[in-house]
């Protein structure tokens, strides 16, 4: 039995959902909320909701349902707590807390780090240089363009291609280059 008449989802299924999607869901919420305490709160609310009303979701779209619930819970919490976008942006942009704090191990598996390292090494040199300048040196794209003597559009294109390659490698580690 996966669901009851009241829409509750079997705890065993919720446990499986947790095992399968917890890391990705936490990463998604971190991207939205950028505060680990708030992420934890929404994360728990989401799985509580899965227990209470996950039975209404279809099995084949359950991942999407879980992420949608998490999204709405996050937005509702931001509205309730009057967390403004500006404050999120300030936190990230001016103090760079989000990127420079120790990487959250819950968001990342060791294998992922290795995949990213390999993928970064395999990028064309021109793209590597832009990634290094942007990610490790925290330079703006304008600064990078000026430093390399390139048009801004070229720098952005290199970064976009690099992000696309790295993301694909992270999503599908078995992909060959």
């Amino acid at each position: 039995m996966t669901t009851g008449n009241d829409g509750k989802l079997d705890p065993e299924i919720v446990h499986q959902l947790f095992e399968t999607y917890a890391m990705e869901l936490r990463a998604f919420l971190t991207g939205l909320l950028r505060d680990h305490d708030v992420v934890d709160e929404v994360f728990q609310l989401t799985f509580s909701k899965a227990l209470q009303s996950g039975g209404h979701s279809k099995e084949e779209t359950r991942k999407g349902w879980l992420f949608r619930v998490a999204y709405h819970e996050a937005m509702a919490l931001m509205r309730r707590n009057k967390i403004h976008r500006k404050s999120l942006n300030n936190l990230c942009h001016t103090t760079n807390v989000y990127w420079t704090e120790a990487p959250d191990r819950r968001l990342l598996e060791h294998e992922n780090s290795e995949q990213i390292r390999l993928a970064l090494n395999n990028l064309p040199e021109s793209q590597q240089a832009v990634v290094i300048a942007r990610i490790y040196q925290n330079k703006t794209f304008n600064e990078i363009a000026q430093e390399f003597g390139l048009p801004l559009g070229t720098v952005l294109t290199r970064m976009r291609l690099a992000i696309k390659t790295l993301s694909r490698q992270l999503d599908n580690p078995a992909d060959d280059h």
Binding site: M23, E24, A27, F28, P103
Partner: peptide, 14 residues
């Protein structure tokens, strides 16, 4: 978005 977060965390960790 989840992948982007993991990617940046991964880049920062190496």
């Amino acid at each position: 978005l989840a992948t982007a977060v993991q990617l940046i965390a991964g880049l920062k960790s190496i």
